[in-house]
């Protein structure tokens, strides 16, 4: 494999990691707020809190990693996206900031009582952020960022009137709720919390239908937006079929209330197939038609240094991630809430 492909694969993988952990986080924030609003907060709120508290910081890093890596491997991407995305990018930063800070304020700052304003901010940003971030996927298909003699510009009209933009936003919203509910169902089951489990199982089943409908919608909108990309997708159609099979399996297991761990692995595979299938068929373009992975690649010394740093980093990172998962996800005592009160 060439450096270019290794580089983009690393970045795509970070974005996939972000997709998973952030979805769980964003969706959980929304469910948490929703449960406070409907008055049965204590049924699922505690479970959500127990999972999120130790990991909330980690989520952000995946995103930063992607951005920093993109700048490093493809400096032209920084130029095009950076110039065009000033406004949407800044709004996303503000939303992320509000969300991160108020989570900490609510969790660590006040003793036990939930502040409804904080919860509302947390729930609302949980849906707004994925909507905002997902528009970059639509932008990368081309036609929205243009370059002319006065520089690089984002065509707001093109962005907002584009059906594909909305298809991607809808897909992002429903998948966030779906992924999150599927994960929480697994987590609640591990915790042996029947009440919470039944509630989140309902959410999971409720959002599974819209997820698959939105996926199909987005799939066919690509055809109109960027026919080349669509043809590439058809060439690796098996990946999308595999994604659908994983989806069906995951929902079936939740329906049966059995093997929730396997079910969540299937959810991860479902999105992995769709994500890598989408990414692979998007190649060689990072931004159609201005940036492709071969012309905009960084110099080879830096590529080598970055990949080396990446491998070295993973050697430290993976054991640490395993440790945090063992302590807070696979530790039955902690999950049930017997241990791990904050200091």
């Amino acid at each position: 494999m060439s450096y270019e492909i290794v580089g983009i694969a690393i970045l795509w993988t970070f974005l996939f990691g972000y997709l998973l952990v952030a979805s769980i986080d964003f969706g959980a924030g929304f469910f948490s707020f929703y449960s406070v609003l409907t008055g049965h907060q204590n049924k699922i709120h505690n479970i959500i809190q127990r999972y999120l508290s130790p990991v909330w910081e980690v989520t952000n890093v995946f995103l930063i990693f992607f951005v920093v890596g993109l700048n490093g491997f493809f400096p032209d991407a920084a130029y095009y996206y950076g110039t065009a995305l000033l406004v949407p990018g800044s709004i996303a930063i503000v939303l992320l900031a509000i969300r991160g800070v108020y989570y900490a304020y609510n969790t660590y700052g006040h003793s036990g009582k939930n502040n409804i304003v904080y919860m509302a901010l947390y729930g609302a940003t949980g849906l707004l952020i994925p909507a905002a971030l997902s528009t970059v996927l639509a932008i990368s298909e081309g036609g929205i960022i243009i370059e002319n003699s006065t520089g690089v510009h984002l065509q707001w009209g093109q962005l907002l009137s584009n059906p594909y933009t909305w298809a991607v936003i809808i897909l992002a919203l429903v998948s966030v709720l779906y992924i999150s509910a599927m994960f929480l169902a697994y987590y609640a089951k591990r915790a042996g919390d029947k009440v919470a489990f039944e509630i989140v199982r309902g959410y999971a089943l409720l959002w599974s239908g819209p997820t698959i409908v939105a996926s199909l919608l987005a799939f066919f909108q690509i055809n109109k937006q960027n026919p080349d990309h669509f043809t590439n997708m058809l060439n690796i159609a098996w990946m999308f079929v595999a994604s659908f099979i994983c989806f069906a399996g995951a929902v079936y297991l939740v329906w049966q209330r059995r093997h929730l761990g396997v079910s969540f692995i299937l959810v991860m595979l479902q999105f992995a197939f769709a994500w890598y299938g989408y990414g692979r068929s998007h190649l060689p373009y990072v931004l159609y038609p201005y940036i492709n992975v071969y012309d905009s690649f960084t110099n080879s010394t830096m590529a080598y240094a970055l990949i080396t740093a990446f491998v070295a980093g993973l050697l430290v990172l993976i054991p640490s991630l395993i440790l945090i998962l063992r302590l807070f996800l696979f530790d039955a005592k902690y999950v049930r809430g017997h241990e791990g009160k904050k200091g």
Partner: peptide, 30 residues
């Protein structure tokens, strides 16, 4: 666009370092 070619490595490593810090702080607190 120009300097990204030269400073990508420390920026990348900074994120790694922060990642480790974030993970262990989460563990420490609980």
């Amino acid at each position: 666009r120009v300097a990204g070619q030269a400073i990508a490595l420390p920026l990348f490593m900074e994120t790694f370092a922060f990642f480790i810090e974030a993970i262990f702080l989460g563990i420490y607190l609980y």
